[in-house]
Amino acid sequence: MYRGYRHAVGPLGQDEPVTDHYPQDTLATRADDGTLTLEVTDRWNTPLGKPNGGWVLAAMLRAAMDTTDVGRPAVAAITYFASPEPGTTATLTVTPVKLGRRVQTVDVDLGCDGRPLARMTASFARDHHGPSQELGAAPALPDPATLPDPRELGMPTDGLFGRIEYRMAEVPGWATGEPTGDPTTTLWQRLDGGTAIDWPAVALLTDASPPPVMELGQMKSMTVQLTVHFHRLPEQGGWVASRFSTRHVAEGFHEEDGELWDDQGRLLAQSRQLAILL
């Protein structure tokens, strides 16, 4: 979904008090006729004025988990057709595809007034235990407590900026109008105020930070398709060390690979998305 940012962080409208809106804003409501609805709020808007795609994925994943007898997510793949409009009510349709003994697969469709907005296919694992071997390493980042809060340096608290906290070891080149040419980003992220990270929040954080393609001077990007592989939840919640990179830009499309790690150096999730430059 839309992830564009401006060269300099400046006022985007009236700031609102920072509040923990995450649980209520990703929760669908079931009507008497069984219809699931989701209120589309501007609290998760990017600076382009559209809801963040990570928030859309989190809400759809939560709907699948709340309405179907599945285990924990193993993979979720979402294709975005159009952005929901803030202030509208979207409809969710959850369709079990196969509820097997080891893997349960569910489709979720999001639409508004008969217009399709997104489709997610997710597979879940129930009571599955197997070997684990980690061959990678978390990004080397300073303690987040030692890094400045961008919101105290002028970043507004409306929209997505007020829902997610960021800590970066250095100011990104794109933020000063001097992109570095290296489309790689490492940073700490967490839900505002340290709200506990659940599975939908893991999905959200794979698509909630400034896209690294901005270091190529490309300031506006829209996600077309996003796939997330889920590994585990953080043991203590809180800060998530994140690494995102782009290696290929072709005819206006680019990929973005991501990794999320907890503060103990344990891999939480991997992601890959296809996005289009605007």
Rank of each mutant, 00 (worst) to 15 (best):
D25R: 13
D25C: 06
T105I: 11
G136S: 12
T105G: 02
L38H: 13
T121E: 03
P51S: 08
G111I: 00
D69P: 07
A118K: 13
H129C: 04
A77G: 13
R62V: 03
V108S: 08
L99P: 03
A145M: 02
D143P: 09
D66W: 00
D20M: 02
V106T: 05
T95A: 08
A122L: 07
W44M: 06
T35D: 01
D143G: 09
P23H: 09
A138P: 13
E39M: 00
P131N: 12
H21F: 04
L61T: 09
D20Q: 12
N52C: 13
A125K: 15
L92K: 11
L61R: 06
T68S: 08
P148L: 12
H21C: 01
A59Q: 04
L27Q: 15
G136M: 10
G71E: 01
A76L: 08
G111H: 11
D33Q: 05
A82R: 15
W44D: 01
L48C: 04
R119T: 13
P51G: 06
T68D: 01
G49P: 09
L38M: 03
V108R: 12
P73F: 00
A74I: 04
A31L: 13
P47M: 11
V97N: 06
G100P: 04
L141N: 05
T89V: 15
H128K: 05
D33G: 10
P86R: 11
D107R: 15
D42T: 00
W44G: 01
P73D: 10
T19I: 14
P23A: 06
P144A: 04
A58M: 06
G111L: 00
K98H: 14
W44Y: 12
T95P: 04
V103D: 01
S123M: 10
T19N: 02
R30H: 03
A90M: 01
R101P: 00
D127L: 08
T105M: 09
G71H: 08
T46F: 01
D42M: 01
L117R: 12
T91N: 10
V75L: 09
W55E: 03
T95K: 10
A82V: 02
R43C: 00
P47V: 09
G130P: 00
D32W: 05
A122I: 02
G54C: 11
T37D: 03
A77T: 15
D69H: 14
P148C: 05
L38R: 06
P142E: 03
R115K: 15
P86H: 09
C112S: 13
L57T: 11
G34K: 10
V40Q: 01
R72G: 00
P73Y: 03
R101K: 15
